[in-house]
Design a protein around this nucleic acid. Structure first.
Length: 502
RNA sequence: GGUCUCGUGGCCGAGUGGCUAGGCUGAGCUCUGCAAAAGCUCCUACAGCGGUUCGAAUCCGCUCGAGACCUCCA
C-alpha cells in the first residue's frame, strides 16, 4: 500500500470552491503547473510565499510516493504595461531605461530568482520553460483559435473573442463572474482600442517600430499576449488536461480565467482538474506588492537592512514563519511575528539535531500508553499534511514531538519506555517531516572547521577546570565566549554543547 | 459601484457544531555549583446583535470593521 493510499490528500479546489479528494488523472502520477515569476525585477517576499506553497505541495506529493512532474515557467516576455494600446512590454521598457539588452535583464533577474529559491530551500521544478522558448507554439495556438473562429486579427494584433467563446462555454467559471457584469463595469473601451469588446484579450500584439522584443508571425512582427504562454507550456509538458494548476490569488482573474478560455477553446476540453491559489502576504494588513511600495527583498530581510526591520532573519526562520499559517489565508508580516518565528524554529531545529544523535539501546520494557501516544503523533503528521497541506497543524504536532525528543535527550533512561521499532519510526518521521516534507533544514551556525576546533579546545579546557571545581575560571571561559556571541550549554552528563548566536 | 474573503486570548496563528491546537511573550516551579538549554504548571479567546440547535468560534441573518479582485502584480 502506497502512502498516498493510506493518507489520501484532500485539497481546496478554487474551481469548485470546496475541498475535494485528490484523484490524479493517471494513478500514481501528478502533473502540476505553477505560474512563475516575471523576470524584469527582483522577486520580493510576497512572490516567494507562492513558490513556497507549491514547493510544499510538490514535496508532499512526492513524499507520499507520487511521481510528480512540476512545471513552473519563467515569464521573459514582459506583460503589457498599463494601457494595452501602448503596445510595449515591461522587459522592453526596462531595457531601454537601463540601456541593457532585454535578454540581459532576463538573465540577471532569473539568476536572482534562482538564488532566492535556493536560499529558502525551495526545490527546482522538473521543467522550467521560458516564454521566449515557445514563440512558435504560441503562434500556432493563436492560428488555431483564429481558425476556430474564437479569435480575430486587427492591424497585426490578434484578440480572443470572449463573447463568442461565452456562447458555448462559461467565461468566468473560475472567478465566479459573468460576462454581462464584466462588460458593464471596469475600464471603458476607448476610441483607440482595436478590440471588439473590452473583455477581449490579446493573444498576439503587433510590435511598434521601436519595440525591442519582437518575433515574425503571420500577422507581422510582434510578441505574444499575456496569457497564452502558460496555456502553451502547460499543454506541451503536461497534456491537454492535467491535474493541478497553481499560482497567486491575484492571478485568478483575469490571467487564469483567460487560460481556461484559451485552452478550452483550442483543445475542446477542460485544461485543469484542480486549481490552487495561494493567498497574499500582507504588511500592516495590506497586500505586499511592488506597486504599493511595501515589498521586501529577501536579501533585505536576511540582513535586516530595511527601515521596517529591527534585525535580520535567516531563510529558515522566514520559511518557518510562512509555514505557520495556511497557504489559503493571508499572512501578516511584522517584526514581532518574525521574532517569535525565530525562536520557534530554533526549538524545532535543535530537536532535529538532537534526535539524530539519539539511539535506542534495545531491550525495552515498553509502556503501551506511551507507544500509543507516539504512534498517534506520527499518524497526525500525515493526517494534517494530507488535509489540504496544513503545515500549521503539522508544525503543532512537530512541536509536541520536539518536546518528547528533548525529554529523551535529558533522561535517556526514558527511552526504555518504547520499543526500538517505535523509537525508530518516531525518529525517522520527525526527521522526514522536517527535512523532506517541510524543507526545514538545520542552519549550521558554524561552517568553519578552524573556529569549531578552537571552540572545542576551549570546551575541553572548561571541562577540566570544572572537574577541579574551579568555577571562577570556568565561568570566565563561558562568560567571555558569551560576550562574543558563543553560548555554552552544560549537559547533564558533563558534556558541553555550544551555539553561535546571530 | 460589482464580485468575494476575513475579523480568534498581550502578539502571531490553526480550527468549522459538542472533546485544552500550537508558537512567542509573561508568571511560577524542577533540573543545574551558577547560567543557558530543557521539562512541568498557570494566564482559556473566538468583532457586535439576533436567530437555528439539547449544544455554535464553527450554521443563518443583520450591523460594524479590515482586506482582495474587477487595471501590471505571486
Amino acid at each position: 500500500m502506497k502512502l498516498y493510499q493510506k493518507y489520501p490528500i484532500q485539497l481546496s479546489n478554487s474551481l469548485s470552491g470546496v475541498k475535494e479528494p485528490f484523484e490524479p488523472i493517471t494513478p500514481g502520477f501528478v502533473g502540476m503547473y505553477v505560474c512563475g515569476p516575471t523576470v524584469y525585477n527582483n522577486v520580493h517576499l510576497g512572490n516567494t510565499r507562492t513558490f513556497l506553497t507549491f514547493d510544499i505541495i510538490s514535496r508532499y506529493f512526492r513524499f507520499l510516493g507520487y511521481k510528480v512532474r512540476y512545471v513552473r515557467n519563467i515569464t521573459d516576455v514582459g506583460h503589457l504595461v498599463g494601457d494595452v494600446d501602448e503596445g510595449e512590454d515591461k522587459i522592453g521598457k526596462k531595457a531601454r531605461l537601463e540601456q541593457l539588452e532585454p535578454m540581459e535583464i532576463v538573465k540577471r533577474y532569473t539568476e536572482d530568482f534562482h538564488t532566492v529559491m535556493r536560499q529558502f530551500n525551495i526545490l527546482p521544478p522538473s521543467i522550467e520553460p521560458s516564454a521566449t522558448g515557445h514563440i512558435v507554439e504560441q503562434i500556432n495556438i493563436t492560428k488555431k483559435l483564429i481558425d476556430l473562429g474564437l479569435a480575430y486579427e486587427v492591424n497585426g494584433s490578434v484578440y480572443f473573442d470572449v463573447k463568442k467563446y461565452n456562447q458555448s462555454h462559461h467565461y468566468g467559471i473560475l472567478s465566479g463572474r459573468n460576462i454581462e457584469e464584466l462588460m458593464e463595469s471596469g475600464r471603458e473601451l476607448d476610441s483607440q482600442d482595436e478590440k471588439r469588446e473590452k473583455i477581449d484579450f490579446a493573444l498576439w500584439k503587433k510590435a511598434s517600430p521601436e519595440h525591442i522584443m519582437r518575433w515574425p508571425s503571420p500577422w507581422g512582427d510582434g510578441f505574444p499576449g499575456w496569457h497564452i504562454e502558460c496555456t502553451v507550456m502547460s499543454t506541451k509538458y503536461l497534456g491537454e488536461t492535467f491535474d493541478l494548476h497553481g499560482g497567486g490569488m491575484d492571478l485568478k482573474f483575469p490571467h487564469h480565467e483567460c487560460e481556461i478560455a484559451q485552452a478550452t477553446g483550442a483543445n475542446g476540453k477542460t485544461p485543469v482538474k484542480y486549481w490552487i491559489h495561494s493567498n497574499m502576504l500582507t504588511v500592516n494588513g495590506q497586500k505586499m506588492s511592488k506597486s504599493l511600495g511595501n515589498s521586501f527583498l529577501p536579501a533585505e530581510l536576511f540582513t535586516g537592512n530595511h527601515p521596517m526591520l529591527q534585525k535580520g532573519y535567516s531563510p529558515m526562520t522566514v520559511r518557518f514563519f510562512m509555514l505557520q499559517s495556511h497557504y489559503s489565508s493571508t499572512l501578516d508580516f511584522s517584526n514581532e511575528a518574525l521574532n517569535a518565528a525565530e525562536k520557534g524554529y530554533k526549538k524545532l531545529s535543535n530537536a532535529l539535531s538532537l534526535v539524530k544523535t539519539l539511539t535506542h539501546a534495545g531491550g525495552a520494557s515498553a509502556n503501551a500508553d506511551t507507544e500509543k501516544k507516539l504512534l498517534q503523533l506520527i499518524d497526525e503528521c500525515y493526517q494534517n499534511m494530507s488535509d489540504d497541506f496544513n503545515t500549521a497543524k503539522t508544525l503543532a504536532v512537530l512541536f509536541e514531538m520536539a518536546s518528547q525528543i528533548n525529554t529523551w535527550a535529558g533522561q535517556k533512561e526514558m527511552l526504555s519506555e518504547v520499543s526500538t521499532d517505535v523509537f525508530e519510526k518516531f525518529k525517522i518521521t520527525y526527521i522526514a517531516f522536517m527535512e523532506e516534507a517541510l524543507g526545514l533544514k538545520e542552519e549550521k551556525s558554524v561552517n568553519n572547521d578552524l573556529l569549531e576546533g578552537t571552540i572545542n579546545v576551549l570546551i575541553g579546557l572548561r571541562k577540566r577546570v570544572r572537574t577541579d571545581r574551579n568555577f571562577a575560571l570556568s565561568d570566565k571561559i563561558r562568560d567571555d565566549l558569551k560576550a562574543i556571541g558563543i553560548q555554552l550549554k552544560d549537559g547533564k552528563d558533563g558534556e558541553m554543547s555550544y551555539e553561535i548566536e546571530s
